[in-house]
Design a protein around this nucleic acid. Structure first.
Length: 387
DNA sequence: CGCTTTTGACCCGCGC
DNA sequence: GCGCGGGTCAAAAGCG
């Protein structure tokens, strides 16, 4: 009897213990969740700071490149005067081989049919530099920008009613680019990116739609053709091809054209770097190859790149399979304080290897806490030293 | 049902 | 002018 009571007492005791254990566990988990939340907030803050620094750096480097080329200095002055109260209110984005003025005129014509107010807005947009710099005032907020683009997209949708019309518009855009390049004697600038991964669908921040596949004579491995699907009329295309049978894990991705829509953060760095390269290429004799290399070193500090012209296509080749340090690194790049890594989709990123499946260009940016002013100052010094 | 991929046909530039 | 080859189109199939 006593024995039974004792057993039941211990059973009750065990039950209480189990409950209190559960409560303790719950508390501990809550504390952990809270801690993770706090860390998450801190990381968010850090990320936004990094993004801000990166944006202003990119903006300033682009501006310096523009001044270096000496192109459209009058227009720059005009913009500077407009924004002299706040230098940082100017967003400069680079565009490959396409005059913004031409696009804007076209947009203007389209929008003209919709409303005169929108024309005024599109005129505001038309502050462009000679070799494809696009300058936008940040006075209108990003939201306004988006609204404008939605309006334009709607206007275009009204004009473009069938698939055939889409094709016509595409051809017109293509024709514009071709006409422009006929004047310079060069075709559209191409940017080749060689990357090691088993999956050819590199995550470069854009959405692509495959429209063709072809087996070239020179290479028995098929080449895939993709079109940017982030905007209905985006003229950007890319080709993806394996780099040969011995090197089946490497892919050569060739980009051609300019996006006619805002790019996600992951894609913007790549676009800025490659556009800078293309702009420098297109500026031709005014730019020495060494200054071009110097510029590219800042965008792709740890990777091998080369510049060539094949079939009248100025081509920038970025080799992500060949680490570049230290021989091609800019002399003054802060090696000691910087690190470089590629972002991979797996939660615990392994070192880059041929077995990695996706490649994110957002990782191309340096993780070093670079001061934009100091980098800019060093960059200016370096450029002036080369002249 | 709508979007994407596949794939054969077609177009067009280039070299001979 | 012709043939070749790279690039694009578009109908059909696949997929979520």
């Amino acid at each position: 009897m006593i024995k039974e009571e004792t057993v039941s007492y211990f059973q009750t005791f065990d039950g209480v213990m189990a409950e209190s254990d559960k409560e303790e566990e719950l508390d501990a988990t809550k504390a952990k969740v809270e801690k993770v939340r706090e860390e998450n907030e801190k990381l968010k803050l850090l990320l936004s700071t990094i993004l801000n620094n990166y944006n202003s750096l990119q903006m300033q480097v682009s501006k310096v490149l523009g001044q270096q080329q000496g192109a459209s200095s009058m227009e720059l002055d005009h913009i500077d005067r407009q924004d002299e109260n706040n230098d940082y209110d100017v967003d400069i984005s680079l565009r490959l081989g396409r005059s913004e003025q031409k696009i804007s005129k076209k947009e203007e014509n389209k929008v003209d049919k919709i409303s005169t107010k929108d024309v005024e807005e599109s005129k505001d947009k038309r502050s462009a530099l000679g070799f494809g710099f696009q300058i936008q005032s940040y006075e209108a907020s990003k939201l306004d920008d988006l609204c404008r683009q939605v309006k334009l997209a709607n206007a275009e949708n009204k004009c473009v009613s069938s698939r055939k019309d889409v094709k016509t518009v595409r051809n017109e855009n293509h024709q514009d680019v071709l006409e422009e390049h006929e004047q310079t004697g060069l075709k559209k600038t191409r940017v080749c990116v060689k990357a090691s991964c088993e999956d050819p669908s590199i995550n470069d921040g854009c959405q692509w739609r495959k429209y063709g596949q072809k087996t070239a004579k020179t290479n028995p491995l098929p080449r895939a053709y993709y079109r940017c699907s982030m905007s209905s009329n985006c003229p950007v295309r890319k080709q993806v091809q394996r780099c040969g049978e011995e090197e089946t894990s490497a892919f050569m991705t060739t980009y051609e054209g300019n996006h006619d829509h805002p790019l996600p953060m992951e894609a913007s760095h790549m676009a800025a770097g490659t556009s800078a390269a293309a702009s420098l290429l297109q500026s031709g004799s005014s730019s020495s190859s060494s200054s071009t290399s110097a510029s590219l070193s800042y965008f792709f500090p740890f990777h091998h790149f080369s510049i060539s012209t094949t079939n009248s296509h100025p081509t920038v080749t970025l080799d992500l399979t060949r680490p570049n340090y230290p021989n091609q690194l800019p002399d003054d790049y802060p090696l000691s304080s910087s690190s470089f890594s590629l972002n991979f989709s797996s939660p615990d990123p392994p070192p880059p290897s041929s077995h990695d499946h996706t490649l994110n260009f957002s990782g191309l940016r340096t993780q070093a806490p670079l001061s934009t002013d100091s980098l800019l100052a060093r960059y200016r010094t370096r450029l002036s030293g080369q002249q």
